[in-house]
Every structure is written in structure tokens, then in C-alpha cells.
Amino acid sequence: MIKKSQLNIIIAEDDIDDADVILDVFNRNSNFENITIVSNGEELLHYLNDPANVTPDIILTDINMPIMNGIEAIQKIAETNSLKNIPCFVYSTGLNPIYKQKCDLLGVKACLIKPYSISEFEEIPNDIIKILQS
């Protein structure tokens, strides 16, 4: 279903330091071809709803972001027919159980905890692929 080595991913991340690390990590992973970074939920929706953009294969979003948080964005994506089938992943520093519950309800593929070391960050792209293949 998903062709390896050509994956397009869009990442919503408001933190510049984390964005740097995650962009670097995905760039170095050979399975991903196009990596787009936006800085909040609203920008994510704008990007997805703009017909000029290629629809990504995967969405990865932080939860706590200004203007529109990750959960709200995923809610909107789930309500949009053309977008609702894109696999969504959430990652955050510590997971509020209420958010976890909402993610499960919205069909989020996995809720990941933001790692405490670069080496663990490196695992995120492969973890995402593993979950999609299972």
C-alpha cells in the first residue's frame, strides 16, 4: 500500500529546536523523500487543503502548539473526506490521558512520547514505518 523509500510526510512542530532535530532525523532516513514542516495545526490544515500541494502519505503532529493544537487539527482532518484516510501520528512531551483517549477515538495510529536523547529521536521514522506495516 505504501511504497517504501518515497514517503511524503508533513510534520507540525512549533518548537524550533525539536523541528531541527526531527527534520534532520527524517532527512537522514532513506524511506522518506519529502519532509515538510509547519509550525501549528492551522498551518497544517492550510497545507493539506491547498490543492497545489501533494497530499502527504503520513501526518506527524505535536500536541501543544499555539493557534490550533494537534488534537484540534486531527479532529478537523478526521472530518474532511479527502484527508481522513491519511495515517496520523501524534508525539508530545508526556501524554495527558485525556489527549490519549481523544487520539484513540480519532483513529490516531500511535501516540509517541518525545524522546530524551538524539539516539531515540533517530528511531521515530522507523517506528512509524513499523506501525504502518503491522
Partner: peptide, 8 residues
């Protein structure tokens, strides 16, 4: 988390 990550 960042202190830990970057001190690493």
C-alpha cells in the same frame, strides 16, 4: 527534556 537531550 531539552537540557537532557542537548547535554547528551
Amino acid at each position: 527534556r531539552k537540557i537532557l537531550m542537548y547535554s547528551d
